[in-house]
Amino acid sequence: MAIIPSLPYTLESIAYASALGLLSMGLSLTFATTRVANFAHADFAMVGSVVMLFLIDRFYYLHHGWGVFLTGSIVGGIFGGITGLLTYLIVLKPLADKGTSSLGLMIATFGIDIILMNLLTLILDTAHGVHIPKLIGASVSSYEPILSLRGYRVFGYTIVLPIAAVLLTVIFHLFLTRTKFGIAMRATIENPDLASVLGVNVNLVYMVSWFFSGFLAGVAGALMAFAFKGVDPAVSALIIVSVFAGSIVGGLESVYWGLIGGFLVGLVEKLGMTIINSIYRQYFVLHLGAPNVSLLNYEKLLSLGLVVIVLLYAPQGLAGVDWGRLARRLGLKKPVEGGG
C-alpha cells in the first residue's frame, strides 16, 4: 500500500474539502452579519442532499448525465436557501428583536438542528416504500456519470464540486464588490449603525445573507449526496463539527477565509488521515505489531487539532494574520519602507 493516496481518493478528498469550504463560507457569512453561530448549518446541506435524491428518483432522464449536477445544485441550493431564510425569519429574528443574546441565538440553532434533522428523516422514511425505495440505503453514486482517468474510475461529482466551489465564490465575490446591495452587505457587516443611518435596509441584508448561506449549503449538500452511502440526515451532526472547524480556522468573520478554512480542514481530514493511516499500517502494524485498526475514523482529531494550532498562533484565525509581514519575515518578499 502506497503512502500517497490514489487519484480517485485524492479527487474525493478535494471534493469533500470544496463542500466544506462552501459550508464554512456560509457559516461565516451569517456569523459576520447577524452574529449567530449556526449549529443547524449542516442541516441546510442535508436539505440539498434530500432534494438531489428526489430529483434523481422522479426524473429518470437525469440519470447518467451531467445535467443531474446542474439541476440538483440549483434546486437543492434554492431549497437550502429557503430553509436558511425561514430559519432566520421564523426563529432567529423574533428572538433577536426581543433582545436575545448571541449565546441564546446559538442555543436556538441547536433546536433548529434537531427539528430539521427529524423533519428530513421523516420525509425520507415516508418516502421509503412509496416513491424512492431503491435509493434509500443505497449509494446514489450509481446514478451519476463516471469518468475513466489514467485507468481509474473517477466519480463525476468529484470533478463538479471543486468547479462549483470556485464558480460560486467568484459569483459571490462579484456580487459583494460590483453591486450596490453587495457593497451595502459589506458595509453592514462592518458597521450596521452607520449603514442604517445611510438608508440601508439592514434587515433585508440579514435576510439575503441567510438565503445565500443556505443556498451555498444546499449546493454543497446536493453534490455531496453522491459521496454518501445513502443519505442519512443524522450525518449533519458529524459534518457540522468540521464546518465550524473551517470557519474558526478562517477567523469566523470573513467569508473568503471561511472558504479557505473549510477547504483546509477538509484536506487535512481526508488526505492527512489517509497518509497517517498508511504510515501506521505499513510501519507500526506490520513491523511493530501495533493493533490493526483503521485510523480513518479519527479524522476529526486532525481538524480539531488544526483548530487548536491555528488558534494558538493566530487567535483571530487566518484572517487575522498579517501575511505581508509574515512573507517579509520569511524572506519571501522585500521589506517595505516604513512598513512593519
Binding site: A184, R186, A187, E190, N191, A195, L198
Partner: peptide, 18 residues
C-alpha cells in the same frame, strides 16, 4: 466609525448616497 474602513473610498462615497 464614521467611515467604513474595510470599503474603498469609492465604495464609501457610494454608500453615502445609497
Amino acid at each position: 466609525g464614521n467611515v467604513f474602513s474595510e470599503l474603498s473610498v469609492a465604495e464609501n462615497l457610494k454608500m453615502a448616497g445609497y
